[in-house]
Design a protein around this nucleic acid. Structure first.
Length: 423
RNA sequence: GGAGGCGUCGCCUAGUCCGGUUUAUGGCGCCCGCCUGCUAAGCGGGUUGAGGGUUAAACCUCUCGCGGGUUCAAAUCCCGCCGCCUCCGCCA
């Protein structure tokens, strides 16, 4: 792994980094980091000089006679005494520095609202009208149970809180949603890819999920693996350490994977139903592109548009939110959530999250490409949900329910459900 | 789970047994130049990455899957891990 934020950026413009730390509410002492960096460089200087001298003498040793060798051995031992101490100091300081570097934030774009949390998010767009019912609409839990489309109590007996089992048409509907989303992305030239959910720690550090999100992640200590909360983890890891040909960019993936989240921070919220669960399915949009702000901005707009198009085609009302600095997470440059209307909640709930990571994630995971001029650069990475189920199954049945308990199938999903217009 | 083999600078490859003129060989590709009616061929040079350093260079360190160890000295010897291949066992 190389630098996380470019160390040189921190040296050259510490105030910029401090502002980002402040805006994102991160607990990081930039001055302490810089002091550590200066110390590391000092120790590097002295230990490398000693190392160079040692190498030189060692070469001489090979050609020397016995007498000279004895002298060289002494001389080298003398160098070693000092060198070893410098090296130990260096290793310790470097480790400290690395740890701090993992906490350095990505610099948010200037358009992001500055604020501590999601209460400072700004709604920038509303699309579609929440449905008006001439009957008393049901929440998705009641609706699904009445129709025999879900088992909640029994599933919880098997698997604990937040567990669910979809049954019958709900399963078909879920699969229709996922298939439809994947197909739409394929027509938009995304490469469909199914990726591992079981991942190594390095992959989670590379995406930026770790160290902060550690307690949100399921761990399998017997195998030294973790359950990823999104396909993004594997998609970032896929090209880690590579130097890609510029001609290969942009890489556009439509990743599918089961996703796992412990939901530790959300104790008693949404404990019932399909809105917040430990295990779900997701089609994820993911982009690797050149390190060019205009280029990644275009892709950000594209990812947003893909998600919006899906929601529009599904006949769901939604709002797009410009996320505040304190809500977007440590690494992000820009984040737009899409919140979809849930009639039972009388409000919009997050169903999509579109993020530009700039080069922050690429630096962590070491995702690089060779530019036309031969220089090696870190790519920009972006991601957005396409469809996450069963949360969207819940939105769908709530929004499209009829008085008789049936659910109208949005036009584009019908081909995936044997042409049925109503479930 | 068991046995064996392998991992070298974009790709292929020499070097590993027997540690030291290895600043890692050669080819392909790529870049620059020369030459040539054009093209091809030919000739000369360059071409891993990271960090430090410098106005810029020079220069220095690290990098032969990753991490340790032995040694004055490690691609080369030892240990652990990861990955790939072959075979056996098991298995959706």
């Amino acid at each position: 792994m190389t630098g996380v934020l470019d160390l040189r950026l921190i040296r050259d413009d510490p105030d910029l980094v401090k502002r980002a730390v402040e805006a994102k509410g991160i607990d990081l002492d930039v001055d302490a980091l810089l002091a550590l960096d200066a110390e590391v460089r000092r120790l590097k200087g002295s230990s490398e000089a000693a190392q160079a001298e040692k190498k030189r003498l060692s070469k001489e040793f090979g050609r020397a006679d016995e007498e000279t060798r004895a002298r060289l051995r002494e001389e080298i031992a003398r160098i070693d005494a000092g060198l070893q101490k410098d090296k130990d100091d260096l290793a310790a300081k470097q480790a400290e520095l690395d740890e701090l570097m993992l906490l350095t934030p990505g610099i948010p774009w200037e358009g992001a609202p500055v604020g501590a949390d999601e209460s400072d998010n700004v709604v920038i767009k509303k699309v579609g009208e929440p449905p008006v019912f001439d009957f008393e609409p049901l929440d998705h839990i009641t609706l699904l149970e009445q129709r025999g489309w879900a088992e909640f109590a029994r599933a919880r007996n098997v698997a604990g809180e937040r567990a669910y089992a979809l049954v019958g048409d709900a399963v078909l509907l879920e699969r229709a949603l996922l298939s439809y989303a994947l197909d739409v992305l394929v027509t938009r030239d995304f490469t469909p890819i199914s990726v591992p959910s079981l991942v190594r720690e390095m992959a989670l550090v590379g995406t930026g999920m770790f160290p902060k999100g550690r307690e949100e992640t399921y761990e399998l200590p017997a195998d030294n693996l973790f359950l990823a909360g999104t396909a993004e983890v594997a998609l970032v890891g896929l090209h880690a350490g590579e130097i890609l040909d510029k001609a290969r960019l942009p890489i556009k993936y439509a990743g599918i994977s089961p996703c796992f989240r412990r939901e530790i921070g959300s104790a008693s919220r949404d404990v019932r139903g399909l809105v917040r669960v430990h295990q779900f399915e997701k089609v994820e949009q993911f982009i690797l592109c050149e390190a060019d702000d205009a280029e990644s901005e275009r892709w950000h707009a594209t990812l947003l548009d893909c998600a919006e198009s899906l929601l529009q085609a599904l006949g769901l009302a939604y709002e797009v939110v410009e996320c505040a600095t304190g809500d977007m997470g440590i690494g992000k440059f820009r984040m737009n959530d899409i919140n979809t209307w849930f009639p039972s909640l009388h409000t919009f709930r997050e169903t999509h999250s579109c993020s530009t990571l700039h080069d922050w994630q690429a630096r962590r995971a070491d995702l690089r490409y060779r530019d036309s001029d031969g220089t090696v650069k870190h790519v920009h990475t972006l991601n957005n949900t396409a469809i996450a189920t069963p949360r969207l199954v819940a939105a769908l049945v709530e929004n499209h329910q009829n008085a008789d308990g049936t659910v109208t199938v949005p036009e584009p999903l019908r081909p995936y459900l044997g042409g049925r217009a109503v479930l």
